[in-house]
Amino acid sequence: MQRDELAGWLRLALTPQLGPVAARRLLAAFGLPEAILAQGEAALAKAVGSPLAQALRQPPEGFEAQLEATLAWLAADPDHRQVLTLGDPDYPTALLTIADPPLMLYRMGRIAAAPQRAVAVVGSRNATPQGLQNARRFSSALAEAGVTVVSGMALGIDGAAHEGAMDGAAPDAVATIAVVGTGLDRVYPKPHLELAHRIAARGMILSEYPIGTPPLAPNFPRRNRLIAALGQGTLVVEAALQSGSLITARLAAECGREVFAIPGSIHSPHARGCHALLRQGAKLVESAQDVLEDLRFVLPAAPAPAPDGEAEGPEGGTTATEDPLLAAMGYDPIGLDDLIARTGIPAPRLQARLLELELAGEVARLPGGRFQRQASA
């Protein structure tokens, strides 16, 4: 993109109070930003009203500095950084289905066409060990089937979803897309700095926010509409009743995307958001294959049948004989006293066995002295 072209789009995007909807009216009326900015105030006022017309007549505060910062960001790695505009043929068509697509979209990483098959995977920042495991395993299975996983690079479920996608994707695939609420010269949250670098190497990071934008609270619920629109479906792994994940699910439904939810324990606050979605019509899923089948994506090859003598496990895996302690635990969080009552195993021996299972990754230790069996996804 040439400097003058970028300057026109950037000035339009940065004009105070001129949102994407009003900007699209201007684009429809006059054409590209250079033509819009060449109009007189009276002509602009007919399209967007007098206050916005007056605002458009002069560059926004800090405009030149923002333009230089954007050009410097692009020049630092032109093979892996790009600014897309509504007038660009590479602009993701999925975003054009929403009411207010960003005028400008910054992207970093593998500069490739938007994937044809994508699923958003979202959930709680304060996820349970089982939730993190589900997010990673579902995302890995989706990626193995050639599906790009979209999420928000937040702590908890988002991070696990990105990790799982990179676990399962082919080396040359766009494994995952992170849609963030800051400028792409910043990483938020800070603990995900290394994750951000790996996502850029294996996929893409997208933002509608200008270079230099800090992590402002209103930006994150707003970016959720892009996460919802980029996927053919949205999978909610864990969510409280008041959470950004439910906002993403609502936005997905509003733009005609499928919504999926993983059920959980009736005693877990992390499952209540998913259960609310299920009551509202979201589709219950127990495996990634449920998502693939519903979206009519090509399924991965089926696993070979289990040899004689092996029984199918609770999530489709196999086990010759299920551990009696794991069977007694079930899948809900449970305290040590309740587990002693169920099994009759003395406390010292039970604690030793739980430690063995924890080290093997089959049991997670939760706050409050509780334990939870780890199920495969």
Rank of each mutant, 00 (worst) to 15 (best):
W9L: 08
L12F: 04
A13K: 02
L18V: 00
P20D: 08
V21R: 13
R24H: 09
L26M: 15
L26N: 06
A28L: 14
G31D: 11
L32G: 13
A43T: 03
G49Y: 03
S50G: 09
L52F: 00
A53Q: 02
Q54L: 13
A55P: 03
L56Y: 00
P59A: 07
F63S: 03
L67N: 06
L71N: 08
A72K: 10
A76I: 09
A76G: 12
D79M: 15
H80Q: 15
L84P: 01
T85C: 14
P89F: 06
A94E: 13
I98M: 13
P101T: 06
P102T: 07
P102D: 05
P102F: 07
Y106D: 02
Y106T: 01
M108W: 13
M108I: 08
R110I: 04
A113H: 10
A114E: 11
Q116R: 15
A120S: 15
V121W: 03
V122I: 11
Q133F: 09
E144I: 10
V147H: 11
V147Y: 05
G152H: 10
D158Q: 09
D158M: 12
G159Q: 08
A160R: 05
A160P: 01
H162D: 08
G164E: 10
G164S: 11
M166G: 01
D167V: 15
A169E: 04
D172G: 05
I177Y: 05
A178I: 07
G183M: 04
G183Q: 05
G183K: 10
V187F: 14
L193Q: 14
R198Y: 10
A200G: 06
I205L: 14
T213E: 07
P214Y: 14
A217Q: 12
F220C: 02
A229D: 03
G231R: 01
Q232D: 13
L235I: 09
L241N: 10
R257V: 02
E258Q: 15
F260M: 11
A261M: 02
I262W: 05
S265I: 01
H270K: 13
G273R: 06
C274M: 07
L277D: 02
R279C: 11
A282S: 07
V285A: 03
E286I: 13
L295D: 02
R296Y: 07
R296D: 12
V298N: 14
A301N: 10
P305G: 04
P307W: 09
E310V: 12
A311S: 12
A311C: 12
G317C: 05
T318R: 15
T319W: 09
G330W: 12
D332Q: 11
D332S: 12
G335L: 03
L336A: 04
L336K: 01
D338Y: 00
L339Y: 00
R342V: 08
R342Y: 08
T343R: 01
I345E: 13
R349N: 13
E356N: 10
P367I: 00
R373W: 01
R373A: 01
A375I: 10
